[in-house]
Amino acid sequence: MDIASLQNAARTVRKTILRTNARAGQGHTGGDLSETDILVTLFLHVLNLPGRDPQNPDRDRFILSKGHGVCGLYSTLATAGLIDAAWLDDYLTFDSHTPGHPVRQKTPFVELNTGALGHGLPVATGLALAAKRQNRSYRVYVLVGDGELQEGSNWESAMTAAHYDLDNLTVIVDRNTLQLADRTESIVGLEPLADKWRAFGFDLHEARGNDIPDLIRAFEATRTVAGKPHVILAHTRKGAGVSFIEDRAEWHHRIPTTEELERAYAELES
């Protein structure tokens, strides 16, 4: 898919996120928008999904460790035609295919039930190790929030992934600099974050995380380094794509009003 088509898909995903959260009256708008370009790049460009079959053992695996960004995931899967778009109408409703955090028993291409933070990387490490030990070709991608990196379990598994030379594993950090209550650097600082990953033995790449061509460049760069797990520090803006939502902590949980939804659509369509 060409860049313009990917960017167009990202606009569709953003509108879907805003509409779906607004209808549900609940959601994590800021984080959904922050990760949108990363998810679009992955599902429409990077991931190898043979036959688009969610059971194919050779499919690349994606784990949304920041499980609260689930509406961004559903919106991307629907835009990619990997799930029924009508399921978004049931977002957060009783026993639906689209619950408020990913559930693998409910939604295809969800590999792990996340929502509690710090769980994606250990499981992704196991998945990548399974591929190495069995000479399977699939790759494993895990998207972590930046605030989530305060969870120690990430660093346990970062050590393990480097120890086992898991170069089929790529961590993408949604570095929007905001967590639930405030800036990460005000709560418990993560910097120097790039140095931390390098010190843990990772092949590190930085990217503009809301810039699809730059994300593609970073994903391609990870392929040139063997013998180490990869990390892409994706510098994003929480709420990216909508001016009055961008980079505002209160939009972690806020959902747009009808008037805000119209304004956001206008911005995205301009």
Binding site: T125, L127, A130, A131, G152, S153, S157
Partner: peptide, 17 residues
């Protein structure tokens, strides 16, 4: 690293072990 122990085991399971 017990958190890693169980998480990695879950990942190995998803990878066919």
């Amino acid at each position: 690293a017990e958190q890693s122990l169980v998480g990695v085991a879950a990942g190995l399971s998803l990878g066919g072990y």
